[in-house]
């Protein structure tokens, strides 16, 4: 886990628990002074685990969307949504886990590259449809987009080459309108 995300973790991950599930929670929040702090602070104060958190503007100027991936058993997730709903600045909370949704994450990975390893890295990039966005004699920087699993997979593939730096956006998600098979 990247350190920026680890910082959000208020509890160290305990032993794997069958009942603990990952939930993608989409939050619409008014762009008010301190509103994001209120949300992040609530997670910290209540001791809830966050895997990732991303925030950005929406079609409505006064409202931002926060996508939080949180872990917990059913009771904890229920409390999380209830506690979020109690925050006055929040417009809407949707636990996408109960819906069908599309999700994406973007990652920038700066990986160590030599004349020997460069072609192999390029090949991995191609398989994952990642783009080369920067190059130097000793490094290659790739940009990859996809589901969290895909992003995890490319990172795993690049690890042996030695990753020098990495930035992940965290998951963003929207409810899927198309209800058939894709």
């Amino acid at each position: 886990m990247p350190p920026s995300q680890a910082m959000l973790n208020t509890q160290s991950p305990g032993p794997p628990d069958e009942k603990v599930k990952r939930h993608t929670i989409s939050i619409l929040v008014q762009n008010k002074f301190g509103a994001f702090n209120r949300i992040a602070g609530m997670f910290a104060a209540k001791g809830y685990n966050i895997d990732s958190l991303s925030v950005g503007p929406t079609e409505d100027e006064g409202v931002s969307r926060m996508t939080i991936v949180a872990r917990g058993d059913d009771q904890i997730i229920e409390q999380i949504t209830k506690q979020l709903n109690k925050l006055i600045d929040i417009v809407k909370v949707i636990d996408l886990t109960f819906e069908s949704f599309v999700d994406r994450e973007l990652v920038l990975v700066k990986v160590h590259a030599t004349n020997d390893s460069r072609p192999e890295i390029m090949q991995i990039a191609e398989i994952f449809r990642a783009k080369v966005v920067d190059i130097s004699p000793r490094t290659l920087t790739l940009e990859a987009t996809g589901s969290q699993q895909k992003v995890d997979a490319i990172i795993k593939m690049l690890k042996p080459f030695s990753i020098k730096e990495m930035a992940r956006t965290g998951r963003v998600a929207l409810k899927r309108e198309f209800q058939g098979e894709v």
Binding site: F33, G34, N37, R38, G41, M42, A45, I88
Partner: peptide, 16 residues
């Protein structure tokens, strides 16, 4: 004080 009391208030405001 808004930051300090965020977790111990139902809501708080800074009037700008």
């Amino acid at each position: 004080i808004v930051g300090i009391t965020r977790p111990i208030t139902k809501h708080n405001y800074l009037v700008r």
